[in-house]
Amino acid sequence: MANIKSAKKRILVTETKTARNKAIKSKVKTYVKKVETAVEKKDVEAAKVALKEAISVINKAGSKGVYHKNTCARKISRLTKAVNEIA
């Protein structure tokens, strides 16, 4: 365990940031899963709506620094490709 005051502060800050990042990543996974299930069911309209929401959530996660911008681009690209294939 840390003895120095600044080290104790860093531990608290890290825990806070970890919890925030985990929540954001979980939200992204949920929205990605919604798109994937709509694609599996071949429901074009639901997939397009879910894709729009997922893109928004993914971009927000990228702007907050949870994901690298290229990771966001890759996720969006793969989802878009999947939706376009059923359309």
Rank of each mutant, 00 (worst) to 15 (best):
K5N: 15
K34Q: 05
V13R: 06
V49G: 04
R10E: 09
I24K: 04
V57L: 09
S26I: 05
T16G: 09
K5H: 06
K48L: 02
D43Q: 02
I24G: 06
Y31T: 10
S56N: 12
K5I: 13
E36M: 11
A50E: 02
A23F: 05
L12V: 13
S26D: 04
A47I: 00
K27D: 15
E45G: 09
K9L: 06
V57S: 08
S56T: 12
V49M: 12
K25F: 02
T14C: 04
I55L: 03
K25D: 03
E36I: 11
V28R: 03
E40Y: 11
T16N: 13
K52I: 12
A19P: 07
I55Y: 01
I55D: 03
D43T: 03
A54W: 04
V32D: 15
V32G: 09
V28G: 00
I55C: 02
S6H: 08
T16W: 06
V28M: 05
K5R: 07
S56W: 14
K27Y: 10
V35E: 01
K27W: 10
K17M: 09
I55R: 02
D43P: 01
K34I: 05
A47Q: 00
S6Q: 10
N59G: 11
A47E: 00
T37G: 05
E45Y: 08
V44R: 03
K17V: 15
A47S: 13
K34Y: 13
K52Q: 10
E15R: 13
A46I: 05
T16D: 15
A47R: 02
V32H: 09
E53C: 07
